[in-house]
Design a protein around this nucleic acid. Structure first.
Lengths: 210, 210
DNA sequence: ACATCCTAATGCAGTGACTGCAAGTATTGA
DNA sequence: TCAATACTTGCAGTCACTGCATTAGGATGT
């Protein structure tokens, strides 16, 4: 169709990566609203239609295609654990590292691009909401476990779903905090917060709140 | 221009209200994605340009133009209070009741329309994020007050901003929970949750988490 | 009564995100 | 070598949204 070797000049993964890279670079340079899909397409050497074949939305090209997932093994440990719930729960959400080794730099630049725009942060958080249901179930399982071990009565058991729900929402708050701190540190080249550090702040705060 | 008495045939408020009503009704009937701005305009008897003069986005016409605001007086009480922080903080966010008396039914229908769509719920929550900064400041003031009263040392004072931040995020979680429960109840004609009820669940949960 | 100003409403033309459909071409497997 | 398959593309169209220029009523001042 074109003079170029039209189709299949590279694998799917390569095309996707090219689009991602172009998106991140352009957004860093011009800001999210200063970049059009057409600009990305030109930079990545693909048609607009191809862009939308690879990414559902312009957002997705910047945020990356990977939705957060729950780490199955961590979930099993979590359910039977007796430690600080919120702090431990943070470990449940795994940021898929399969992309990192190939392009660690891209990830860092992407974070800078995203954190520059509050709207995008919010969009990122919407994605987190997609696994909230799963999270709720796990939390409920754990609460039930503990209640049974403690010999709870029926009324206490009946209250668990509600408690699991609110806990999940609290958890979402914590994760937002972690994500924010994470990107803030990344901007300054500082190491990301580890579980212990989060648990520390969280523990102090919870003591004040209760 | 048209055969109709072109402009100024009703006050601003009336036009705005007409658009809001048309939007809610149409969304209830066809779902958010099944409704176009043009449909709303036809139903409300205005041009598309007028629609966008009254509302920045299609969302806004459904969610209502009122952003959540902080209740100043409640904030002052909150800062010096010593009660359960999270539960009390819920009272800070005021849902502007100035719209309700005129059209209580519309509000109920609007809630139904919004809660039917998870995306819209999320969008609604984004609005909450807009006052998060304000909220953070208030929380920080309160934490500082309490720390001073307790005779805290420098290290403890230095930790306060971080604690305020995470608390705000936790608070956002609680408010999401309240909003969700609220709309869920509204759907079934049940009374909305009051502060005491929220405080109750919250208290129990926090005791388990700490 | 008349000119004036202001405001709400409108038309129009354009941009940008996104979709469905119908090809076309390179790669793969039989 | 032929055919199924996988990627890619162009094209036409929809929809949200914006800027600009224009028009029509109403309110105001003299």
């Amino acid at each position: 169709m074109s003079t170029e070797p039209g189709a299949r000049r590279r694998g799917v993964a390569e095309t996707t990566a090219a689009i991602e890279r172009a998106t991140v670079e352009l957004v860093l340079e011009h800001g999210y609203d200063g970049v059009t899909v057409d600009m990305i397409c030109r930079a990545a050497g693909v048609s607009q239609r191809t862009f939308f074949n690879h990414f559902k939305t312009k957002d997705a090209a910047l945020l990356g295609p990977d939705l957060p997932r729950i780490d199955e093994r961590a979930a099993r440990e979590f359910i039977v654990s007796d430690g600080p719930l919120l702090a431990e729960a943070v470990g449940l959400v795994r940021i898929d590292p399969s992309k990192l080794p190939g392009d660690a730099g891209l990830m860092a630049r992407r974070i800078r691009a995203i954190s520059g725009n509050p709207l995008l942060m919010a969009r990122q958080m919407e994605r987190l909401a997609e696994i909230e249901g799963e999270l709720r179930e796990i939390v409920e399982l754990r609460l039930r476990q503990q209640a049974l071990r403690a010999g709870a009565d029926e009324a206490e058991l009946a209250a668990i779903p509600d408690e699991a729900e609110i806990t999940t929402h609290l958890l979402a708050g914590v994760m937002r905090y972690v994500g924010l701190t994470w990107s803030r540190r990344a901007e300054q080249g500082a190491p990301p917060p580890d579980g212990a550090e989060v648990a520390d702040v969280l523990g102090r705060v919870l003591r004040k709140l209760a």
